[in-house]
Amino acid sequence: MNFSLGLDLKELGKTTQVNNIQQPKGHVWYNRAVNSKEMKGCIMALEVSHVVGGYSQIPVLKDISFDVKDGELVGLIGLNGAGKSTTINHVIGLLTPHKGKISINGVTIDQDSQAYKQQIAYIPETPVLYQELTLREHLEMTIMAYDLDADKAWETAHELLKTFRLANKLDWFPANFSKGMKQKVMIVCAFMTQAKLYIIDEPFLGLDPLAVNDLLNLIEARKKTGASILMSTHVLDTAQRYCDRFVLLHDGQVKTEGTLSELQAALPEAGESLNDIYLSMTKVDRA
């Protein structure tokens, strides 16, 4: 408890460089944040435990563990190349972990891929659409893929389309949409599924302020119905206001996680805002 912060962080930086697996003892802020998670013990919607993985044999993620509870919005924060997208790709089942386990409400993808995927709705960072399908057909395809009740799903969809000002573009092809519009299509498709876990990769860039606001309202509403959201982002001030908890990734490892007040308590000298905490965390490696 008596360590000065500067010394503490330097030491952490050193140890991560020398040996990734052996965790340094006596890192007050680090341990506290992890411990607080274990004390709560709620139902986990998403549980990522000791995942090692990446695109090739060389692991990008080095033993990552975190969770997202029911009705919780967790922000996945990290620099470019920290491993956010890799983490997300593992969660949505695009990549298979070398080691470790990912489960959604107790189901892993190996046990039942259908049940696993059924619970996820994914909004990619760069919108991807089927070039040959119109907007209407994309929505229909989503209904079919998730086996939704068509009438109910269309009701939700029409509401969402109206919110995001796409209602009159149902017969358009993706080629005619701007990037922001494509992103809205992704949002509509994801949120008409009533999934239990939403995975949203950097949603705020490319959307107009009105759409950002609408999206945040939508997330709030879904949280109230018990859905969980894992969201990666660089827009820290928005994340600070809306996320319940943060997972700070750095160099393929979870540097720390917790609520904003937990992070503040762990890093009292770093500053008040998430931005300050984040910057001080990344300084560890730069120093």
Partner: peptide
């Protein structure tokens, strides 16, 4: 297209 892999089909 990532959804080809993400869809629960």
């Amino acid at each position: 297209v990532v959804f080809t892999h993400v869809y629960p089909v």
